[in-house]
Design a protein around this nucleic acid. Structure first.
Length: 591
RNA sequence: GCGCCCGUAGCUCAGUUGGAUAGAGCAUCUGCCUUCUAAGCAGAGGGUCGCGCGUUCGAAUCGCGCCGGGCGCACCA
């Protein structure tokens, strides 16, 4: 796209001036203000300092060796040494016309495709999915779609929690307290109930404490891990019941996975993983458990295996096998990383989890690099973390009765609220049509609220905010796309051409310019794993369209303005729909 | 104690590897539907970007020190 073209030209010119220089820092961005043109480059100032040159002088020299004459007006040097680029009307017309013809949508696929394994959602078996799962699920799915659109190979993997100590309690509960009828009615609630019941019975501090329950749970867990047929059968049934719930929710959210390899899948390799780590001298025995300690290659401050107490640095080991012989998620994650690299040869492995696991992933990545240096050198591992969801009181989110808010209930409520608005706004539509619009609008609102904030911010949950249907929300963007789509439908057959110079109004030009920035926005979103850049872009595009729509009649305009404006409507519709779909949000034809 | 993160308008938050006059939504106030959908548009008010020092042409952004808050730190994930 255009910003890359400018970048390439500038970099070539700089290499002429200063051969051998790394020009990676030369960045071209959309102009911050229309009065500065359409694109700007601020990087020369810093470069001038490195070259010990006057920035404006350097800018002059660079421009003397660059030719933009076919595409831009002659670039201006402004302020301390900014370069400002203004599109020729013919260039704008050409880019819009080729896009309208379907040749591109303001982005180009990458020239260096990567293979990414993206690990997200990861719900637990036998527990209802709650709002806490939404960020990982929505964020991971969105990132997967954006990478894919830009031409990367994406492998999504749902690493579900289908193994672990909680099954000891669940098995005791299943055998002693299961209500079969309740299980048929609502399996997740019943499994949750028996888990909580046994959990309370195991805790001497709690009222329902029963001597020996904890030991019983441990025994059931050991039996399960040893392959006891009865326990295995119950365990499989719990997974099947849970998977049905996952499928329902993922279906509603429009989320899918290439693989669902839960923790249990890696069981067969765990002992070998720990043995190999010990054999290679990475892990050693400590207090009966097996753990990875600092190898002293990093300064203590940056070493994830050290922590400071009372002014002294103490070991902060990564535990990979418990003293009782059981494995934990450290060993599972190490085996998982190994499996993924062997199986898919990825360039990147992306873990989308909450920020509280940062230390775990630092230790995991460092441990893996020491265990498999050759494999680790072929892959970048990213912990893409996000903030916690808090209640209105700033504490971890719970309902009044202390329960988690169920994801299914949140989605139901979203659709109900949207239906009220649709019914009010569009009494002329039939019931089925209203419900379908309400579904897209309600779910869109939820996803938008989740993706709009910077992912690292903590997140204060409120029904009103999560389900907001006005302002900076998905329904606003969806609404603008229906307005644009309606104009296009009403136009009938048209020659989609933007004649050079036919766009002159500031509302037209601002809209057109913003369409061109779609590609650079996607690149930015992918570079930092931040779909909120795309949300901001789409809201801005929708706002610019709305202004254009108020100020510039389309169908009543004279040619060639009519065609040019219609092109803007067509392209706005396409970019909004494409952008929303990357966020997992559907766009109705009418609202 | 150490580490990570946060502190921006009344409220909730953006701010794209340091850039030009710090933005949006909500809320409040004023206008705009006989003209392609008013789930909309135009406008107004509202800021010592927690505080201080530093780095430099230039800091909400980088460094150091405080103040305030959240999270994590050995057998849960």
């Amino acid at each position: 796209m255009l910003h890359t073209q400018i970048q390439i030209t500038l970099r070539a010119a700089i290499r002429e001036i200063a051969p051998g220089l790394d020009t990676g820092s030369i960045q071209v961005r959309p102009a911050t203000d229309p009065k500065f043109g359409d694109y700007q480059c601020n990087s020369l100032i810093q470069l001038a300092r490195e070259l010990k040159k006057n920035p404006r002088q350097l800018a002059t020299e660079v421009l003397a060796r660059s030719d933009f004459s076919d595409v831009f007006e002659s670039p201006e040097i402004a302020g301390p040494g900014y370069l400002n680029f203004r599109l020729l009307p013919a260039t704008l017309a050409r880019v819009l016309t080729t896009a309208a013809a379907g040749n591109h949508l303001f982005f180009t696929p990458t020239e260096t495709p990567r293979t990414l394994v993206i690990d997200y959602s990861s719900p637990n078996v036998a527990k209802p999915m709650h709002v806490g799962h939404i960020r990982s699920t929505i964020l991971g799915a969105s990132l997967a779609r954006i990478f894919e659109l830009l031409g990367h190979r994406v492998i999504t993997d749902n690493h579900i929690g289908d193994w672990g100590t909680q099954f000891g309690m669940l098995l005791v509960g299943w055998k002693t307290s299961l209500n079969r009828e309740a299980l048929l009615q609502d399996p997740l609630s019943e499994m949750e109930r028996i888990y909580k019941l046994i959990n309370a019975q195991s805790d001497p501090e709690r009222p329902g404490f029963i001597e020996g329950t904890r030991e019983q749970a441990r025994a059931e867990l050991v039996a399960l891990q040893a392959g006891d047929p009865e326990n295995l059968a119950i365990w499989k049934e719990m997974i099947a019941l849970s998977q049905r719930q996952f499928d329902t929710i993922y279906g509603r959210l429009g989320v899918r996975f290439d693989h669902v390899l839960g923790e249990s899948f890696y069981n067969p390799w765990l002992q070998a993983t720990v043995d190999d780590l010990v054999k290679r001298g990475v892990a050693r025995e400590s207090q009966g458990a097996w753990a990875i300690f600092s190898d002293g290659t990093l300064p203590p401050k940056d070493d994830p295996f050290l922590t400071q107490r009372d002014g002294e640095w103490h070991p902060n080991p990564f535990l990979i096998q418990k003293a009782d012989g059981g494995f934990n998620y450290a060993s599972t994650d190490l085996a998982t990383a190994q499996y993924r690299i062997e199986t898919w040869a990825p360039t990147d492995i992306v873990y989308v989890t909450d920020g509280r696991q940062q230390l775990h992933f630092q230790q995991l990545f460092a441990s893996f690099a020491r265990w498999k240096p050759e494999a680790a050198a072929t892959v970048r591992m990213h912990h893409i973390w996000f903030g916690s969801i808090l209640g209105e009181d700033g504490k971890p989110l719970k309902t009044r009765s202390g329960e988690n808010i169920r994801l299914s209930e949140l989605l139901d409520e979203a659709e109900e609220r949207a239906l009220k608005v649709v019914t009010e706004k569009r009494p002329d539509l039939d019931d089925a049509a209203r419900r379908e619009i309400a579904r897209m609008v309600g779910l869109g609102a939820v996803k938008w609220q989740d993706l709009l904030p910077n992912r690292q911010s903590d997140y204060v949950f409120s029904w009103d905010k999560m389900l907001a249907l006005t302002g900076n929300t998905a329904p606003y963007v969806q609404y603008q796309s229906t307005r644009a789509g309606k104009v296009v439908r009403d136009a009938g057959e048209t020659n989609l051409v933007v004649a050079p110079g036919s766009l002159t109004e500031s509302a037209e030009l601002a809209l057109a310019r913003h369409l061109l920035y779609f590609g650079t926005t996607l690149e930015g979103a992918v570079a930092e794993f931040r779909p909120n850049y795309l949300c901001n872009y789409l809201f801005e595009l929708a706002s610019l369209y709305s202004r254009f729509y108020e100020q510039c009649p389309v169908l009543k305009a004279e040619e060639p303005i009519r065609s040019a404006r219609l092109c803007l409507c067509v392209l706005t519709t396409r970019v909004l729909r494409q952008g929303l779909s990357l966020l997992g949000i559907e766009a109705p034809e009418v609202m």
